[in-house]
Amino acid sequence: MCCESDQPSLTQAGHRRGQIQLLAALSAIVLVWCGLLPALGRTTVLRQRIAFLEARGVNPSAKFFTEQEAGWRNAAEVERQLQEHPQAFWALPWRHR
């Protein structure tokens, strides 16, 4: 990130227009987040899917495996299986034929 961005140069008149635009955008955000999205979330399909993922400890917006309980849980489970059956994961089949 070596270069600076050009900033939007706002004149005095444009500033008032900008304030109105910002206010309109914020109102839209409130409307969508507090009205539309909760209504969508109450539909049977979405409510069930969200509950299913929450019960499994899956966070669909996780950026890294540590951000979801399912990441730690599955890692531990696979680690256990790998320790119990190392041959299955490491031994090439033609080596022990």
Partner: peptide, 14 residues
């Protein structure tokens, strides 16, 4: 905003 459950469900992260 990112923590709203529907937004989160679709993986639209912060």
């Amino acid at each position: 905003l990112a923590e709203q459950k529907v937004v989160k469900y679709y993986g639209l992260e912060y």
